[in-house]
């Protein structure tokens, strides 16, 4: 069984358009176990009951940004090992450095095409 069949992914973005785009791209790679959340708190909620291998999260979200979500994931036993791919609108040195310190697995700058998203994911989990 290929990795893509088993990999469970959560997409976190406050824009439904972005969630749709990412989910659609994942679908095109054959990743079908995808859940999504519109903000950090609801992502944490869902992850508590239904864990995933990889979280793909937007950085700029209301209330709790992507790095705060990462921090929450990393400081919570059950989710601290989850893979984390941050998607940012601006490649800001500060964001990336903070992400590094928090244990971000990879980041991807918007806009991106499905190929780049795939490469970013594969850099974390290996060949799909």
């Amino acid at each position: 069984m290929a990795l893509r069949d088993q990999l469970r992914v959560m997409v976190v973005d406050d824009m439904s358009t972005s969630r749709g785009l990412i989910t659609n791209a994942l679908d095109s790679y054959g990743i079908r176990n995808v859940t999504s959340a519109a903000d950090g708190p609801s992502a944490l909620q869902k992850l508590a009951v239904s864990p995933v291998h990889l979280v793909i999260s937007d950085y700029n979200m209301p209330g709790m940004d992507g790095l705060q979500l990462l921090h929450a994931l990393r400081s919570n036993g059950p989710t601290r090992g989850v893979g984390f791919l941050l998607i940012t609108g601006r490649a800001d040195r500060e964001i990336i450095d903070m992400g590094k310190r928090l244990g971000m697995n990879n980041f991807l700058k918007k806009p991106f095409d499905p190929a780049r998203l795939r490469a970013a994911i594969e850099a974390i989990v290996g060949k799909l």
Binding site: L54, G81, G83, N105, I124
Partner: peptide, 9 residues
């Protein structure tokens, strides 16, 4: 990129 090991997965 920080590769996800099985430990973390």
């Amino acid at each position: 990129p920080a590769t996800l090991s099985l430990d973390l997965g």
